[in-house]
């Protein structure tokens, strides 16, 4: 393991990334898919509205995006902070 200050910076960068990712995660599922659906009900998507699409399709696609983005970003953070597995 590298020195403490670098690994602290690494850990807080990781936590920041996790928090941002989870906000998006909650926004598309609990938000647009359920609680905020009435707010976007004016946006029509094929016979229904945007909230329905997010609940049955959109949230899943965004989840995929989040996981791959996180993996890519973390793997480069590992290298920047010198804590990757060589």
């Amino acid at each position: 393991m590298s020195d403490n200050s670098s690994s602290n910076a690494y850990w807080s960068a990781n936590l920041r990334l996790i928090v941002i990712s989870l906000i998006i995660w909650a926004l598309v599922s609990f938000g647009l898919g359920i609680l905020l659906r009435p707010l976007v009900s004016g946006i029509a998507v094929g016979g229904t509205d945007l909230g329905f699409w997010f609940a049955q399709q959109g949230s899943i696609l965004v989840f995929l995006g989040i996981i791959f983005f996180y993996a890519w970003r973390m793997n480069s953070l590992d290298r920047e902070h010198g804590v990757d597995e060589e």
Binding site: M1, S2, S7, Y10, W11, N14, D78, G82, V83, D84, E85, E86
Partner: peptide
């Protein structure tokens, strides 16, 4: 601490 960093897995 060690679980939190990948190095040395």
């Amino acid at each position: 601490e060690s679980v939190r960093v990948p190095r040395g897995a």
